[in-house]
Simulated assay, not measured.
Amino acid sequence: MRDLVQWLARELVEQKDAVRVEAIERDRATVFELTVAPDDLGRVIGRGGKTAKAFRTVLDCAARRQGRRAVLDILD
């Protein structure tokens, strides 16, 4: 799933080399911390947070297919 998050983020941003994804295992979930270049933060979040919500929905569906839970944190 880390690869999925990284791929989706790189498709959204202009500075692809600045995309960093860290996976942290917590109790019953995996937390993915996404870091992008400051100029690309708006592209990942989207107007009104719509892009971020769609990003989280895709991640949640992928996690549920594996019987897991995943959370996406977009760091600034």
Rank of each mutant, 00 (worst) to 15 (best):
M1N: 07
M1H: 09
R2S: 09
R2G: 14
R2V: 14
D3W: 10
D3R: 12
L4V: 10
L4Y: 06
V5M: 07
Q6N: 09
Q6S: 10
W7Y: 13
W7S: 12
L8Q: 04
A9C: 03
A9G: 05
A9K: 01
E11S: 15
E11I: 11
V13I: 03
V13Y: 02
V13C: 04
V13F: 03
Q15I: 12
K16F: 08
K16I: 13
K16N: 15
D17T: 00
A18F: 07
A18W: 01
V19K: 00
R20C: 07
R20S: 15
R20A: 14
R20W: 10
V21L: 07
V21S: 03
A23R: 05
A23G: 11
I24F: 02
I24W: 00
I24A: 13
E25R: 04
R26V: 05
R26S: 15
R26F: 02
D27Y: 00
D27P: 08
R28W: 07
A29V: 01
T30F: 05
T30D: 13
V31W: 04
V31H: 09
V31P: 11
V31L: 13
V31F: 05
V31D: 15
F32L: 08
F32E: 01
F32G: 00
E33Q: 10
E33W: 01
L34P: 05
L34F: 05
T35H: 08
T35M: 06
V36A: 02
A37R: 00
P38K: 00
P38V: 09
D39E: 15
D39Q: 12
D40N: 12
L41N: 10
L41A: 09
L41G: 07
G42Y: 02
G42S: 12
G42C: 07
R43I: 05
V44L: 03
V44C: 07
V44T: 00
V44D: 03
I45R: 00
I45C: 14
G46D: 10
G46V: 03
R47G: 04
R47P: 06
G48T: 03
G48N: 10
G48K: 13
G49Y: 05
G49D: 09
K50R: 15
K50G: 06
T51H: 04
A52C: 11
A52P: 14
K53F: 05
F55I: 01
F55H: 07
R56A: 08
R56I: 01
R56Q: 11
R56T: 01
T57V: 06
T57L: 11
L59K: 07
L59Q: 06
L59V: 12
D60E: 15
D60F: 04
D60T: 06
D60M: 11
C61N: 14
A62C: 10
A62W: 04
A62L: 11
A63M: 10
A63G: 12
R64Y: 08
R65Y: 08
R65N: 12
Q66H: 03
Q66L: 13
G67L: 09
G67P: 08
G67K: 00
R68K: 13
R68F: 14
R69A: 15
A70P: 10
A70W: 02
V71A: 11
V71T: 02
D73C: 02
D73E: 15
D73P: 01
I74S: 02
I74Q: 03
D76L: 06
D76I: 04
D76P: 10
D76G: 11
